[in-house]
């Protein structure tokens, strides 16, 4: 394997459509809950330890070789809000196109055939990592980082926040990212003994509520 593949996968310029999504930052900015670098950091920390942890664990489990369709069902059970399931599958479909072009594999082809409308994005991300020869921990890092880099980048556009400040937020979250990716890989390793209940299911009420509200906005800058 080449570890550098992780840099390609986690790069914000990887053509998987993530740039069009704010990860809940757009409604939080509109509600005045994100208004500066400090509140952005609070937002990102909360998202990382809830939705981010779940995404990282789903990605790590898939990268570890668990049946992607079964992990996709576990993702459905952990995503009660319709708007977030739709977003996850749309992003999964885009990630699938990019991944099959970048690291073609029979496993990616099989998942694409089993889920023509798209699997949950973290599942596809995990399978892409596996196809690239990366580890479950690597996949956990990529998913966890994406959970905070998306909102941070969006906040720069939504608030005209100084990009230096937004990047400093991400740097301050590095220990939390280590913790999340490590926890994700550890739970993925427990599936063989405990089944998919080993995967975390952490939730964030406001992310859930505002994601569904945001989906009804007639005009918005980001798709989610």
């Amino acid at each position: 394997m080449s570890r550098a593949a992780l840099l390609v996968l986690a790069d914000g310029r990887f053509p998987a459509g993530g740039h069009a999504h704010s990860g809940g930052a757009e409604p939080a900015v509109a509600a005045g809950r994100i208004k500066d670098a400090h509140s952005l950091e609070d937002f990102c920390r909360g998202r990382l330890h809830t939705a981010g942890l779940v995404a990282a664990a789903l990605a790590a489990a898939t990268a570890a070789g668990r049946d992607p369709v079964a992990v996709d069902e576990a993702a459905d059970a952990r995503t009660p809000v319709l708007a977030l399931r739709i977003t996850a599958r749309k992003l999964g479909r885009q990630m699938m196109r990019a991944a099959r072009a970048t690291w073609p594999s029979a496993e990616l082809d099989a998942l694409a055939a089993a889920r023509p409308q798209g699997a949950h994005q973290p599942v596809v991300l995990g399978l892409a990592a596996r196809s690239a020869g990366l580890t479950p921990l690597d996949a956990g890092y990529a998913a966890a980082y994406e959970a905070v880099s998306g909102p941070a980048t969006a906040a720069v556009r939504l608030l005209s926040l100084d990009p230096f400040d937004a990047t400093a937020v991400l740097a301050r979250l590095a220990p939390d990212l280590d913790q999340t990716a490590t926890a994700a890989a550890a739970t993925a390793a427990r599936i063989s003994d405990e089944g998919f209940d080993a995967l975390p299911a952490a939730s964030a009420p406001l992310l859930d509520i505002t994601a569904q509200q945001h989906a009804t906005w007639p005009v918005r800058l980001f798709a989610s």
């Binding site: 509140s39 937002f43 920390r45 909360g46 809830t50 964030a204 992310l207």
Partner: peptide, 8 residues
């Protein structure tokens, strides 16, 4: 972490 913040 973040339980009382803008995401949760």
């Amino acid at each position: 972490p973040g339980w009382d913040g803008p995401a949760i």
